[in-house]
Amino acid sequence: MRAILPEQLASYFDSSPVALSLGRAEGDHELLLTNEGFRNLTGYATSEIVGRNCRFLQGRSRNEEARAQIRSFLQDDGQANVRTSIVNFRKDGRPFVNLLYMTKLRAQSGQVRYIFASQFDVSRTQPDRLADYDLDLERTLDRLSPVLAESGIVVEGSLMTIANTVATIAQAKLILSDLDNGDFL
């Protein structure tokens, strides 16, 4: 799979400190590439995830609102990005609340080439860690843009700063409480 990707993009993924994944723009949006941060977060090896849609991480959780937001993003060519909390499960079965950010990477012709995503576990984090992640993600996107430009690809959207980090973490804790009570399946 890696051979079809611009080498600069693959190299960039390998060096990023943020958990990243890259999916196909068409079809079932199968994963083409993940980095070490993603593999550490989920517990899955590359051979277990490339070629699969990320929805397998959701297990049996409903995630109705998050799924609707993701579907809307994928179906609406004009929607540049989406950011939502979604319940995911690690390979060992432990749940976590994933703050998922997705954006479209387009060729200069305007055609969506890839779906770029970043993941962050907000389950048991502190506001300062989330703020650090936001800063890392913003830097990642800033550094990714010129790397992609060399391959004729542009980042469709830019990261919107979280308005209330404490509220995001509080929401994640509520979701975890629901998970612990079995209310999310």
Rank of each mutant, 00 (worst) to 15 (best):
S145K: 07
L141C: 00
S85L: 03
A66D: 04
L137N: 08
M102R: 12
Q75T: 11
E64A: 09
S72H: 14
R67N: 01
L74E: 02
Y101S: 07
K91T: 07
L135V: 07
P95T: 04
T103M: 06
Y133R: 05
R143D: 14
R106N: 09
D134L: 12
V122L: 01
S72A: 13
R71M: 02
K104Q: 09
P146M: 06
D121F: 06
A117R: 11
D134I: 08
D76T: 13
T103I: 08
E150D: 11
V82M: 07
T125M: 03
D136E: 15
D76H: 11
D128P: 07
S151Y: 11
A80G: 10
L74R: 04
D77Q: 11
Q126A: 14
P95N: 00
T103W: 09
R143N: 12
K91M: 09
G93T: 10
F116M: 05
P127K: 08
S61N: 06
R67V: 10
L105T: 05
Q79Y: 04
T140W: 03
L99A: 15
V112E: 09
S151M: 13
E150V: 15
P95Y: 00
Q119L: 14
D76S: 15
F120Y: 15
D128L: 15
R67E: 10
A68I: 03
Q126I: 13
I70K: 00
S72L: 10
M102Q: 15
A80H: 09
V82K: 04
L135I: 07
D128Y: 12
Q79L: 12
P95D: 04
I70W: 06
I70M: 00
L105Q: 05
T103H: 09
R124P: 08
F89G: 02
A80K: 12
L144W: 01
V112L: 13
P95M: 02
Q75I: 05
R139L: 07
Q119T: 11
E138G: 12
M102S: 04
A107L: 13
K104L: 08
G78W: 06
V97Y: 04
R124K: 12
S123I: 09
R71D: 03
L135H: 13
D121N: 11
S109G: 11
A149I: 01
R90T: 02
R106V: 08
Q126D: 13
D121V: 00
D136L: 12
I70R: 03
D92A: 12
G59H: 03
Q119E: 11
A117S: 15
G93S: 07
S123Q: 01
F89M: 05
Q111L: 12
D121P: 03
D132A: 14
F120D: 10
F116T: 07
R60G: 04
Q75P: 09
I86N: 00
L144M: 09
A66W: 01
F73I: 01
R139H: 11
D121I: 08
D76Q: 15
L144G: 01
L135T: 14
R124F: 11
R83M: 10
Y101V: 12
Y101L: 09
L141S: 07
Q108A: 09
R106D: 08
G110R: 10
A66R: 02
S145F: 01
R143G: 02
Q108I: 10
D121S: 00
D121A: 03
L105R: 03
L105C: 10
S109C: 09
N88R: 00
P146W: 10
A66N: 00
Q111A: 14
F73G: 00
Q119G: 05
M102H: 12
V147Q: 07
F73D: 00
R62F: 04
D142P: 01
Q119F: 10
